[in-house]
Design a protein around this nucleic acid. Structure first.
Lengths: 102, 102
DNA sequence: CTGGTATATAAGAAATTTCTTATATATATA
DNA sequence: TATATATATAAGAAATTTCTTATATACCAG
């Protein structure tokens, strides 16, 4: 097992292939923040922001970091930051990844 | 002009975020071929293959190359090969690309 | 006790993407 | 002329993704 590198590549690309999710990553690089603050900053509803964030978290592109003791007080405020991913795609790499797992 | 690098990134990622389109690129890296041959090889209908190929061509990820004088004869057989693209994605690059064209 | 901050999720609508089927054209070979 | 090769596209069905609205919980300040 431990295969299907190809399927993982597709889901990672799908996670990235969305303007809102790219903006979320861009915003969190500058400064890690809560889903609620992110929603306000981006002019989006909280549920939509939460949804996109969930997709990014599931793919490991964004992670929850330990509380900055900044916006303190409210119920368990979760701060998010982008993971340190690096994705390099060329035709040859795509072929190599797809060949690994028929 | 020359703007909206961000939108181009999204459409490129969308073009890549599909298992069939990744398989098409992988197959064409090994050997450039016609849409028809590609469809047969992949076990897909010609119209579906043509559709995916069209999307890849539109984004410049696949290009038509000059006839190999190989499968000669039939009506204007068009041979395709992947373009030499290179896409490197990190959180910082995403931020930089999105900042260029607010 | 109301409003603002903060979380999470479900249901369904809306939009987009994906895929099939049908149509049309054209050539070379058996 | 029938078959296999080869192209292109349109119409609509099917599937998936995206987004809104509603619901529920919880804490703190005024």
């Amino acid at each position: 097992m431990g295969k299907d590198e190809a399927q993982k590549l597709v889901t990672t690309l799908k996670a990235l292939a969305n303007p809102i999710r790219l903006r979320i990553i861009a915003s969190l690089v500058d400064e890690p923040k809560h889903a609620y603050a992110l929603a306000k900053e981006m002019g989006l509803s909280y549920p939509l922001t939460h949804l996109h964030l969930k997709g990014l978290r599931k793919m490991g592109l964004v992670k929850e970091i330990e509380h900055e003791t900044k916006t303190e007080g409210r119920p368990s405020a979760r701060t998010y930051a982008p993971s340190k991913f690096e994705l390099l795609l060329t035709p040859e790499r795509i072929r190599d990844i797809l060949k690994e797992d028929g």
